[in-house]
Simulated scan of single mutants.
Amino acid sequence: MDSVQVRPMREDDLPSVERASAVTFFEAEQSTRRVSDPEVEPRSTVASEQWIDRMRFNLSIDPGGCWVAVKEDAGAGEVVGFAISQNRGHLWFLATYGVLPSHQGQGIGKRLMDAALAHADGRPGIFSSSVHPGATRRYRLAGFSLHPQMRMVGTVDRSTLPAVAGLQEGRADDFEWMDRLDQNLRVAGHGPDHGYMLDTLRLVVSRDRARPGYVYIDDGGRASLLAAAHPETAQKLLWEALALSRPRTLVNCITVPNEWAIDVGLAARLDIGQEGYIAVRDMPVPAPYLASGHFL
């Protein structure tokens, strides 16, 4: 019988891990797609390259949190599962996790999660979870609280955009106060993740000492990560992102403590829906905060 080995990830595993990730999440999204949702599309070549680049970064920063499940077949290894987690100071987060549909229900996911959680070494934890019943059961059994998330999608009614003042382009010398803000909101700073995001995303900040905040915005004008000391600052930052949005945009990872984001989205004429969970252990749900799907 073929055996499955769970072992630390190596850099030369990354292309195989990306392929397993693409198949796993494509099938998961298809199975949970609602009638009103757009058709699920396979991951593009560019998105695959970006995925590998992000995971290579995680592997270089904290390799102890990166694991693969490999099926040994006549000497050749096939990646059938993966768990990529990271420690940042006193916080642990799960960047991505999955098992090929053809190998689910065999205990592989539990072995991968056990390895990733052992790396956490008791730290508080956070990650964004899908609605997959097997995965959510495993997360709850591991002691995580599952907080439903919402998302807002649509085309911004540009007549609703307010004049926003007091924001500036972010720079690397902002990282120190940004990490202090992160610590207040989510236990620990993003540390080296800020440098990676600054290289790949636009950073907009409010340097108001009483009400600081920041948002990373992708090429489509979507807020990839937003943190603020006050809901008013958070709303200004989100409006800035929406002003840069393409015809159809997305605001995701909205939890109940972050209803300020719902108010902005409704004012911009976006539609609200549900999407998965924010899972936390030994920490509150961050607010005012919109988590990054990749760096939490």
Rank of each mutant, 00 (worst) to 15 (best):
D53M: 09
S128H: 09
L270H: 02
V70H: 12
R56Q: 04
V280A: 06
M150A: 13
G170P: 05
V23N: 06
Y216R: 04
G189K: 05
A142Q: 04
A74L: 13
L201A: 11
G143I: 06
F295P: 02
G89P: 00
A287M: 07
L201I: 05
A83E: 02
V153Y: 12
V79S: 06
D121A: 15
Q183D: 06
Y97P: 01
P284R: 09
T233F: 01
R137L: 04
L296Y: 12
G265N: 11
G109K: 01
E18M: 12
P148H: 02
E275C: 06
D219T: 11
K110S: 14
H230W: 11
T233N: 01
H230P: 09
L250V: 13
A116F: 01
G213F: 02
Q168W: 03
R88M: 14
G122R: 02
L91H: 07
A228M: 04
T200H: 15
A142H: 03
Q5A: 14
S44L: 09
V156D: 11
R269L: 07
R246P: 03
W67C: 00
A229N: 00
L181W: 07
D37N: 04
D2H: 13
L238Q: 01
Y97Q: 01
W92S: 07
N184P: 02
P231A: 12
A28I: 10
S128Q: 13
A165S: 14
T249M: 07
S44W: 08
M113P: 00
A172Q: 15
A135C: 06
G276N: 01
A28K: 05
C253K: 14
D271M: 13
R137Q: 03
Y289E: 12
C253V: 12
S130W: 04
